[in-house]
Design a protein around this nucleic acid. Structure first.
Lengths: 335, 335
DNA sequence: GAAAAAACTTTGCGCGCGTAAAAAACTGTT
DNA sequence: AACAGTTTTTTACGCGCGCAAAGTTTTTTC
């Protein structure tokens, strides 16, 4: 930086100032620096910079399972918004493992990020570890809500999701039963079940819940295996099944195919199947999946703005808000 | 570190030595440090450490498109192997954008990683930028081959893929036509086409190529839209279609569903469809997709060992090897 | 055109650690 | 008990930059 400052004709502290904020120096000096920059391609040593700064200009993004295209898509959006805001995002996936989640947060701590966007594993998360982390680092939680943690929570209105699609399914055919995992990792699953029950009762129908065994994040396989069992045992009391999420629904579609059950909303079909999330692949299932779309863009955008608002404020504004976005009904052929 | 050294009863340089390699200190001193470590939970400042080291103990992982579960899966494997080897992996996705790919490599450079595992975008990659990067940082290329770059290339034997499945399809029914994008981004696509042509000619059949329009990484949609057009124009001359990759095949399945074309290997069906890759979702399509499985585990494992072998060696061992793994036929219901 | 404000330069310290060299303490061996 | 070999301590420098204080120059204001 010393050398570069001399060839660009300014002093080192001015160059330092420029890199922290190009607008903080006079236009004429800025030009001199940028001219030199083109000729010499100097860039500050990122480690030396971060050693002395309190604000590291990095943000951590942590998702529970990156092999799930839903999280890949959200992460992609969030990354982009962070870059636009002039930060360096770093992406981590817990791969469904609570131990790894804690380890990631541990490592993240030593990276001294200005903030973190965290979608926790959910039920299996180490609550204490996450709470401690949120106290140490400005953290916005998204997708999966944890009580009293983080600056803000950004997610979807799970109850509204279920109510929206239950209302649609009842209006267009027989009332649905609810297909889910027995012990869902994601807390949204519980709210979706609640929303389903409330919506059904509100419409004067009796809720029917079909729960299937299974652990982990291989939802499609869980939905398939559980679906085959449920079909064999005739546990679907109606010809309409609302799945807790799209990935389960995709598995159920496979089960139906294997068992020769025709899925769709046409008269010739045996079963209607709906999901929730509008997973990137739901448009391409056979039949294409009717579902409730998460507002990917709103969630990612709002998460980032919420984080930077809190980071920018001098006072640690733990608003403890819950910002929920509504779902949008996506009608396709499966229901 | 000064303080921590005193409470653990050793000197600071010894503590420093311990963190670089716990086995480099006497067993008794190691125990004293680790005892203190439990009580005080000290950890070295990662920025200060990296400022002075040449070997940063970080490895970069760059993939072209993380929202593709294939790359998410590979990345997950590679991450794990790096962690097991005591390194800190950092994951990046170019999101299909060549500019972003270059930017990632630029940023990666200033992170001074001990090595990088790079799956290039392919045809759209900025070759010059990648070549320059490979000269500056030990880099192993995988999935997508680029001439004369990197230490080694690890990937699949694309020709063998096509030959394997062409042989199977011909043996079990009518010879396939080949369904692909007109201008595929990934160079493997070209080798797969070649493999298809060779295999067909070897078996005494005339190759038929069906190319569809489309840019970018939304392969399913490209396959669907192209599939609908091809079906309408009756461009599939036989009742068997081999797709260049599974994602195109998934789109084609959707097109077939929309057009009422029954896909499968049973007598009642109109069309057989096969893919290549064994994409994580191919097992769950309707019908489940017959395909050639990439050896995810071998590719990721070998990439990591190749990188660390080169990093460990003092001499820059640019072997310029191409290590190709064979595919495994996965027979499902679609063909 | 002078005063006030803003931008810049000079100087110098410190961040937390890696690392080298020489001295000191420890280890096992005869 | 004396020796050689190994490990640790002491001492000291440097990494590349942020940042603060004081002095200097440039720009803005009336």
């Amino acid at each position: 930086m010393e050398e570069f400052a001399s060839v660009s004709g300014v002093s080192r502290p001015t160059v330092s100032k420029y890199f922290n904020d190009p607008d903080s120096v006079r236009a004429s000096t800025r030009k001199r620096i940028e001219d030199a920059l083109e000729r010499y391609d100097y860039r500050p040593n990122i480690f030396a910079v971060n050693q002395n700064r309190k604000l590291t200009k990095t943000v951590g993004i942590v998702v529970p399972y990156l092999a799930d295209p839903f999280f890949a898509e959200i992460a992609r959006n969030i990354e982009q918004h962070c870059i636009d805001a002039g930060y360096r995002p770093t992406l981590f996936s817990a791969h469904g493992d609570p131990m790894l989640e804690v380890e990631i947060l541990d490592n993240l701590r030593s990276l001294k990020p200005s903030g973190v966007l965290l979608a926790p594993l959910g039920r299996n998360s180490d609550r204490r570890a996450i709470e401690a982390f949120c106290k140490a680092v400005p953290t916005v939680l998204f997708d999966s809500f944890l009580q009293d943690m983080g600056i803000t929570f950004i997610g979807s209105d799970s109850r509204q999701f279920s109510q929206l699609i239950v209302e649609y399914l009842c209006r267009t055919g027989s009332p649905p039963c609810f297909f889910e995992m027995k012990a869902p990792a994601n807390p949204n699953a519980n709210r979706r079940r609640q929303g389903y029950i409330e919506a059904m009762e509100g419409l004067g129908h009796t809720p029917v819940i079909v729960q299937v065994e299974g652990e982990g994040w291989a939802f499609e396989e869980i939905g398939r295996a559980g679906g085959i069992k449920a079909l064999a045992a005739e546990r679907f009391k109606t010809n309409t099944v609302l799945c807790s999420n799209d990935r389960l629904a995709i598995g159920l579609l496979t089960a139906c195919y294997e068992k020769g059950v025709r899925v769709g909303r046409h008269e010739s079909c045996d079963l209607r199947v709906a999901g929730q999330d509008d997973h990137p692949f739901s448009r391409f299932t056979c039949p294409p999946l009717t579902t409730v779309a998460q507002d990917y863009d709103a969630i990612s955008r709002r998460s980032v703005t919420a984080l930077f608002a809190a980071v920018g404020a001098d006072t640690q504004t733990v608003t403890n808000e819950r910002i929920l976005f509504e779902g949008r009904l996506v009608m396709r052929d499966s229901a």
